[in-house]
Design a protein around this nucleic acid. Structure first.
Lengths: 194, 194
DNA sequence: TAAAACAAACCGGCCAGTCGGTTTTATTTT
DNA sequence: AAAATAAAACCGACTGGCCGGTTTGTTTTA
């Protein structure tokens, strides 16, 4: 009464991530997801109230993943944290092709759907605050030059997002991993006190 | 035999931009576009072969606009060009809310549709080359420090895109115009030779 | 054996695209 | 200048198919 249920739910989520990313939220139909997951519509609507509810659940999965990786780097000093992020680039770019279209999908839906927007914007602002605090700490520690932490945070997040998006659009257009690493170096160099 | 035809076509494009941006490519139906444009479906399919063909035509309009603004800044020196772009920020952010969702839509469709991808990637690579050449010139002129123009170009484009996207998601979350200006200053400062 | 989990047929509505017919416009003929 | 013709522009009802969601009935599991 539990095991099978959990497996089914996990399978639905797995298929949904795949199909939303491939076809987009609108184009990926519930029928498609059911077929891919190897279950019936009855099972689907037993686990999720609606297509939108499934989408929101996916957002939750995504956010939990991010929270975990942030939690994992809490113990380090500020420059160490940035170094850790840089080191994670190969992994990030390897998984970007799967996760990123889904992320873009969240974005687009959020800009149109009030409910999804609310669910997206709260954690987004939380991450921004965390990053801002991190940079502020770095400035106070004396390892960073005197920058506006607010602005620097937006700048870094923007760059990361932009690089990922460009790599999504044109995966073979550049050695993205290397570009990202060098970009990060340039950015950090302009932040670090010499 | 011409005037009315042109007006109709222009009206279709105008409505399409509006509705694709608001509702997305899939959700914006041909019926909706026809109704908004005040024409019939027959007229629509007289002017455009398919929904996708209309989308491609929209992409063309967008690209022509970009080409024009690039052409307009051809005469200047490299630092001047960057300054010009910075000066354009208020205008860019003002128009971003209309144009940006449409841009995102292009992106998403391009990552899924081979034909649309082909139509997007060619001009994209052209812009990248232009920007790279610009920075290279700046380095050779001696106004920029010795950076890899390829990387710097990606970095700048990434930042611009990331900022615009963030402003799209959370328009009231920050003073984006100011953030963009300060980010640009930070970036250019790390590029300019002192 | 009762509740949870699932299957499958089913529904109203909307979708992109078609098609036969009508109106508008430009050109040619008278 | 008017009439005739041809072609482009347009209309809107219609189609087949798919969509999200419901319902009804069956299997699985605690």
């Amino acid at each position: 009464m539990q095991q099978r249920s959990e497996e089914t739910q996990a399978q639905i989520i797995k298929s949904a991530i795949k199909l939303f990313a491939t076809n987009g939220y609108t184009a990926a139909s519930v029928d498609m997801i059911c077929k891919d997951a190897g279950i019936s519509k009855g099972a689907f609507y037993h686990h999720f109230e609606s297509k939108q509810a499934l989408f929101l659940a996916l957002l939750d999965v995504w956010l939990v993943t991010i929270d975990k990786s942030i939690e994992a780097s809490r113990e380090n000093t500020v420059p160490e944290t940035f170094l850790l992020i840089t080191d994670a680039f190969p992994y990030i770019f390897k998984t970007a092709n799967e996760g990123l279209p889904m992320f873009l999908e969240f974005w687009l839906q959020a800009s149109r759907d009030e409910k999804i927007w609310q669910a997206s914007i709260t954690p987004y602002r939380r991450y921004h605050k965390y990053f801002t605090a991190l940079i502020k700490k770095g400035v106070e520690e004396g390892s960073f030059v005197e920058v506006d932490p607010e602005v620097a945070s937006r700048l870094i997040v923007s760059t990361a997002m932009g690089l990922l998006l460009q790599s999504l659009l044109d995966p073979k257009g550049a050695k993205w991993e290397q570009v990202a690493r060098e970009s990060a170096t340039m950015l950090v160099n302009s932040l670090l006190k010499k």
